[in-house]
């Protein structure tokens, strides 16, 4: 059977890890390649690298980061951050990404999903969706790192993404992200219902129990950043916990 994936996420800016490992001086090293290799050795199933380009020089730094991570990594690498065109995606893939993640640009131009899937195959395209709770209930899609609301109902947008060629959905609860209060389980169930492609849960994990809850709610994979970066939990530790709860994981 296909196993449930545990995916550590590295947040970078201009090629530097911005939410780094907290212990000692390592934070200043900011080497995504070292962190990625560490997670692979702990049993991570995949690495997601979100590299926001903040400056013009950032593009070269981003390319260098991806090459360095690819060199070290023998598990899949998904890269997101500023993909607005076929050319952007090709640049990331040529550097060694296995999948590219699109978010804001896909909302602004949904045809981009079709174009990317036609060009690279749908298994290569991750649609990242940021969802925020509406005051009257339900969730809508937000873009620009949560700053801008859209009129898209979240499940509708995920289904449109699937129809247009996304290979999987990376769903982040904007209300939970960084709060360490657990994944938004109602949101996961709501989106899971209408979706045939894999769903990755993101936003809010504080420990193995939260990952288990998200998997129970229908997530095919769980993404987490701070619980691993902080050193609070190791990937193999989380997998032992999940395995004891009956979740099939690669060990």
């Amino acid at each position: 059977m296909l196993t449930t994936r545990i995916i550590p996420c590295l947040d970078c800016r201009d090629g530097r890890v911005v939410k780094g490992i907290q212990f000692g001086n390592l934070r200043d090293v900011g080497s995504p390649a070292e962190q990625a290799a560490l997670y692979e050795s702990q049993g991570a199933d995949e690495i997601v690298l979100l590299d926001v380009i903040a400056t013009v020089a950032g593009q070269a730094a981003q390319a260098e980061t991806i090459r360095a991570v690819r060199q070290a990594l023998s598990i899949p690498l998904t890269v997101g951050g500023g993909v607005r065109s076929i050319a952007d995606a090709r640049r990331l893939l040529d550097c060694g990404a296995d999948k590219v993640s699109v978010n804001t640009a896909a909302v602004q131009n949904p045809d981009l999903i079709d174009q990317l899937a036609d060009q690279f195959g749908r298994q290569c395209i991750v649609l990242a969706v940021d969802a925020a709770a509406c005051t009257g209930g339900g969730w809508h899609v937000v873009t620009h790192s949560g700053r801008q609301p859209t009129t898209w109902e979240v499940a509708d947008w995920c289904q449109v993404g699937e129809q247009r060629g996304a290979g999987e959905i990376l769903l982040t609860s904007w209300d939970r992200d960084g709060t360490r209060s657990g994944y938004c389980l109602d949101l996961l169930r709501h989106v899971r219902n209408g979706l045939a492609i894999p769903l990755i849960a993101s936003g809010g994990a504080n420990g193995p129990e939260h990952l288990w809850e998200a998997i129970e709610a229908g997530a095919d994979a769980v993404l987490a950043a701070s619980i691993f970066h902080s050193g609070d939990f190791r990937v193999d530790e989380v997998k032992r916990f999940l395995s004891a709860r009956g979740v099939e994981v690669r060990r």
Binding site: L2, T3, I197, A221
Partner: peptide, 29 residues
């Protein structure tokens, strides 16, 4: 669910020279 994106157990053929039991990464429909 398709595509299959993730790790799946592999059972080697009895006469396989190259494949051992273990988990492999797939990305296919």
């Amino acid at each position: 669910r398709r595509p299959q994106l993730g790790w799946n157990r592999v059972a080697p053929g009895a006469e396989s020279r190259y494949i051992k039991e273990g988990y492999a990464y797939y990305a296919n429909s």
